[in-house]
């Protein structure tokens, strides 16, 4: 034997432990950064299934490698310390309280939200809202966006026409942000922006360093973003900062080409600039055509 497994190695030669660890790292990477988001963003059902199958197989085999390392004592997950467990319990308790308050709000409105339209119902933050054709919320006391929505980005089926744009990977409706609905025209009421905004923090996401989730990044807003504030109070003359409002510039336009990783939402949440493709379409006013 040239070298014992798991201990030091000669230059240029890897130990069994190093080999197993590298394999596991590679499996984690391809599974988490390629297959997992590919499943979420594939439009073609066959392709989605293929990525899903590979994701499952890779995870299954990663478990085998983990078991190998673990059985030899080379990979021993550390037990959580008391403080971490306590923090976890607090987070769980806080989450329960938030959910209870949501239940209270729902009961205040008769146990249901007054929504119209046929779109999908979302629950982001404490205020459920609907992305159908023209929705209303009872929470703010002010009807919002009651006019016709000729450019309703969600469409009557609750499906964003973004998905029809070339190259769109398709988060579908799951991650649709109300911010994308801005710039609709005369039906706009500024109060709308305060009602359905994607706060993220309602469920504590992002506050505990939960990782690179776009929701976590969104949560860092903590309230009304400056670009919304800039457009308030102008009634029908409100001109949305459409470069912000309508942009969904993650995946569909070359995500990953910049090497920023798989989360287009993460880019969206961070990006404050106007993309070049909007600038190249004068007169669109941020409307998707």
């Amino acid at each position: 034997m040239s070298h014992p497994s798991g201990s030091g190695s000669k230059s240029g030669t890897l130990t069994d432990r190093q080999i197993a660890e590298d394999i596991l790292t590679s499996q984690k990477y391809i599974s988490n950064y390629y297959y997992a988001p590919a499943v979420l963003e594939s439009t073609d059902p066959n392709l989605r299934n293929m990525f899903q199958k590979m994701h499952n197989e890779t995870q299954s085999q990663a478990k085998q490698v983990f078991d190998y390392l673990n059985s030899r004592g080379w990979y021993k997950p550390r037990q959580a310390d008391a403080q971490s467990v306590n923090d976890l319990r607090n987070a769980a308790q806080e989450s329960k309280q938030i959910l209870s308050s949501i239940a209270g709000e729902m009961s205040d409105t008769g146990g249901k939200s007054d929504m119209i339209g046929t779109g999908q119902q979302h629950h982001m933050g404490t205020q459920p809202f609907q992305t159908g054709t023209g929705w209303q919320s009872t929470y703010s006391g002010t009807p919002q966006w009651t006019g016709a929505a000729p450019h309703n980005v969600y469409g009557s089926q609750g499906v964003s026409p973004l998905s029809q744009r070339p190259g769109y990977g398709g988060y579908g409706t799951s991650f649709s942000s109300p911010a994308q609905s801005h710039g609709i025209g005369t039906g706009w009421q500024p109060t709308y922006s305060q009602t359905p905004q994607w706060r993220g923090t309602q469920y504590g996401e992002g506050q505990s360093g939960m990782g690179p989730s776009s929701l976590a990044l969104g949560a860092s807003w903590g309230g009304q973003p400056s670009w919304m504030q800039g457009g308030t109070g102008t009634g029908t003359g409100w001109q949305p900062a459409y470069s912000q409002a309508t942009q969904w510039t993650g995946t569909q336009y070359g995500e990953g080409q910049s090497g920023m990783g798989p989360s287009s939402l993460a880019q969206w949440a961070r990006w404050g600039g106007q993309p070049s493709w909007i600038q190249s379409q004068p007169g669109t006013q941020g409307q998707w055509r």
């Binding site: 297959y35 590919a38 963003e41 392709l47 990525f51 590979m54 398709g170 336009y253």
Partner: peptide, 26 residues
């Protein structure tokens, strides 16, 4: 294929190929 799908396919092929090469060496 969409642009996104193309990108993930391309990166997955490259990633899996690299893993295959490493496994052959290992």
């Amino acid at each position: 294929l969409t642009q996104t799908e193309t990108w993930y396919l391309s990166e997955s092929i490259k990633g899996e190929t690299l893993i295959c090469q490493k496994l052959a060496n290992y």
